[in-house]
Computed example of a mutant assay.
Amino acid sequence: MRLPEPRGGVSETVVRALSGAPGSFAGVPVSSPGYEPWLDEDLQLALWVLYELHYRGFDGVDPDWEWDPALLGLRARLEAGFVEGLRKAVPAVPDEPVARALTTLVDADTGPSMSRFLQRKATLTQFREFVVHRSIYHLKEADPHSWGIPRLGGRPKAALVEIQADEYGGGRLERMHAELFRTTMGKLDLDTEYGAYVGQVSAPTLATSNLMSMFGLHRRWLPALLGHLAAFEMTSSIPNRRYGNGLRRLGGDADATRFYDEHIAADAVHEQIAAHDLCGGYVDQHPDQVGDLLFGAACALYLDGVAAEWILTRWEAGNSALREAPADLAASA
């Protein structure tokens, strides 16, 4: 994967530094742009690039940059602004037993319904744009949450391993969820390479991915990571049924829709494991961390709603939901 084109001073400084030798980064001032951090294209791209150093890296970038102290210092400052904004934006978490509290948060979520739009109204071009946005996470599906496995013990560890084993297809390549999504992309004549469309997606889409990476990389945010996964699983089954039906309406065959169809049954089971065995088991072990766990769930729901609203607003105005339409999408418009 090549380094993306910068979107401002911070991401430009990061991209330029990564083109050189580790140890040469001298830092860069970071100031608030005056609006929510998940709408800040420069900040979210810079964070995404810094996080990707811990995944697969970039062509021509020395792997020693991954633990460069100056880059880690910059990342910490960007993360601090991200978390501060989320603490102000997300709703207060309910004072209930954790499984019930998670259900309360999910039931109270009033974000726009991307799945209903795609099921009933979306054009093929819009569905392809949706897949482009989702590719930023789905081509590495489950990887951020897997960072939680070595930090857990007992019942919650077993629960997370059970969920992740399904995400990775039980060790069978053709059943891995990331590979199923790659097939969907191929059926839609999209570029299936990891990170191919990072230059086309919005800051809110990057923010949904960055949130998972931030929670996953920091042991301090382990309970938030578990809450995030629970919210993710608890809001997956019904939307994926709608996504699959929407793609069938647009002519998608069984191979194209298998990614969505697979999630209908799998995530109906996963949501129970995540809420009760994973989160419930973790809170039994660490009752003082329930607030952080529910904060992670609330952040997941909030940013998913922001990203959906960003896309739907542009579609309803008759515009593309991509920053720049690449040739393979412009041709279908």
Rank of each mutant, 00 (worst) to 15 (best):
P37F: 02
A321R: 04
Y197K: 01
Y51H: 14
T183D: 13
G227W: 01
T192L: 02
V198Q: 11
A274R: 02
G81R: 09
D64G: 09
A307Q: 11
A165R: 15
R249Q: 06
G170P: 01
A196C: 03
W221C: 03
R75G: 10
A80I: 03
L225G: 00
E179F: 10
Q126T: 03
D95E: 13
T125N: 13
T125F: 14
Q289Y: 00
D304G: 13
D284F: 03
L211Y: 07
A80P: 01
T208D: 05
V106D: 09
D277Q: 14
E36Q: 12
S146T: 14
T313G: 15
D68I: 02
P204G: 06
L47G: 01
R219V: 10
V283T: 07
E162Y: 08
P204C: 06
R241I: 08
Q44T: 09
R56K: 11
A268F: 12
E36P: 10
L225H: 04
A330Y: 02
G186C: 01
Y302C: 05
Y55Q: 11
S237E: 13
F82Y: 11
E129G: 07
T192K: 05
K140E: 14
I149L: 13
L39K: 06
A158F: 11
Q285S: 12
G20Y: 05
R241N: 09
W65Q: 01
R220P: 00
M114H: 06
G169D: 08
K88C: 06
E174N: 09
I136Q: 13
S11W: 08
R175M: 12
E12L: 12
R16T: 14
D64N: 10
L206G: 03
H263W: 02
A333R: 13
Y197M: 02
V131A: 15
L329Y: 08
L71G: 01
Y51A: 06
D40E: 04
F215T: 05
V161M: 13
P94C: 10
L43N: 03
A89C: 02
L294M: 07
V10Q: 08
D189N: 14
P112S: 09
D284G: 12
L180H: 10
R241V: 12
F117I: 07
K140I: 14
H270M: 06
D284C: 00
L152A: 08
S113H: 09
P112A: 10
E233R: 02
G305F: 05
L312F: 11
G296V: 07
A231Q: 01
D191A: 02
S113W: 08
D40K: 00
G169R: 05
W48F: 12
A230I: 03
N245R: 14
R182D: 06
M114K: 09
H145V: 14
A300L: 11
E174I: 04
V269F: 10
G171N: 05
T184N: 07
G148D: 09
E129Y: 02
G251H: 03
E129L: 03
